[in-house]
Simulated scan of single mutants.
Amino acid sequence: MNFDEIETFLSVVQHKNIANAAIKLCIGQGTASARIQHIEQELGIQLFFRQKGIKSVTLTPEGEHFLLIARQWLSLRQQAGQIKNLLIFKELRVAAVDTLNQFHFVKIYRDFMDKNPDIQFYLQTEHSSEIHQLIESQQIDLGFVFTLHKSPNVVATPLFREIPVIMYHKNSSFHHTYQISDLLPENEIYPTYGDDYDLWHRRRFPNTDVRRISIGTFSMLRHFIDIPESWTILTQSLANIMVQENEDLAYRILDDDPPPTRITYMLQYRYPKPWIGELSRLFLEDIVKMIKENPAMELLYGSPY
């Protein structure tokens, strides 16, 4: 059974006459009859009632059922023929930790969408551990995290490195003395960085179990750092953004026994989908451009570290 035979069947149904259907299809009446007979032989059914001396034909009950299938067949063939004319959207699914999505990646996302209108973009904000799981299950294509977790099929690539700094209110005592002793623990807004940072912090600021507040994401920092005497430790790139937003804030680099640097990693599935490689490359170009333009970020991608 082929398309020509299905087309002939539908034409006979439409014109209720084999001769007229053949004329419409520009074929001989014998060819049209042969096509109908071939369908009947292949399916083992009779499609039309035929009577001698009567040119018009009507569908049998089996023919009525086949008519539904034939129309679906024709519709599917037409849809298949239109694929080349359709605007086919490729997908890129990205997840990043809150700090990156809130403070660094928004402009990259918008620029990427503008330059690639044929790409459907899916964005998520998750914790590092969850991003690893999403990559492992192939629910997302690219992930950006600060902390690494063991995942057999997740490939982590160092992207950029930043140095943490002390940010404080200009009305604080520290702003005038730059003495660590003036950074009182009860005024600290403590971020969740990781084990290395916690060890450094306990060594650098001993006996500081009492803190004003601990935060899990830096997007909350804006609501508390404007209190006089408040202080925190965050990356220099993030400090630059907050200082621009609030002229009452300032920051200082710790040259003596500085905190551990923070590395941002890009996560990918070990065996990506065929088209993801090109989309990832395009997206990564924009991220590398941002890193190169930000003096507070040290590019690690493409170089040993």
Results as ranks from 00 to 15, higher is better:
S172H: 06
I45E: 10
S280V: 02
V288F: 05
A95S: 07
F160W: 15
I108P: 04
P228C: 05
T208D: 13
G81H: 05
A80L: 04
R252I: 02
L299V: 07
A156F: 10
F205N: 00
I39S: 10
R77M: 12
G302P: 11
L134A: 00
D98Y: 10
G143D: 08
A22K: 02
L87H: 12
E229H: 11
F9A: 01
P272R: 08
R204W: 06
G216Y: 07
H104P: 03
L299N: 14
R262I: 14
F48I: 15
N2R: 12
I233S: 05
N240R: 15
A70W: 04
K24D: 12
D255M: 04
E64K: 11
E188C: 11
M167N: 10
E247M: 01
Y122Q: 04
G44R: 02
S230E: 02
N17L: 04
G28R: 06
P185F: 15
W231S: 02
W200K: 00
F146I: 02
F218K: 01
T217P: 00
F174W: 12
G53N: 12
F205V: 00
T208L: 07
S151N: 13
I27D: 01
T208R: 08
I36T: 05
A156Q: 05
H38Y: 08
D256I: 11
Y178V: 07
A80K: 04
D286T: 14
R93D: 00
Y269A: 03
A22D: 02
T60G: 02
W73L: 10
I276P: 07
P259M: 15
F48C: 15
R35M: 06
R50V: 13
I39Y: 06
R161T: 07
E188G: 00
R270T: 01
L67N: 07
Q179S: 08
D226R: 08
E229M: 14
L142K: 02
Q72K: 14
W73V: 06
E5P: 12
V288T: 12
E298K: 12
G30P: 00
L249N: 03
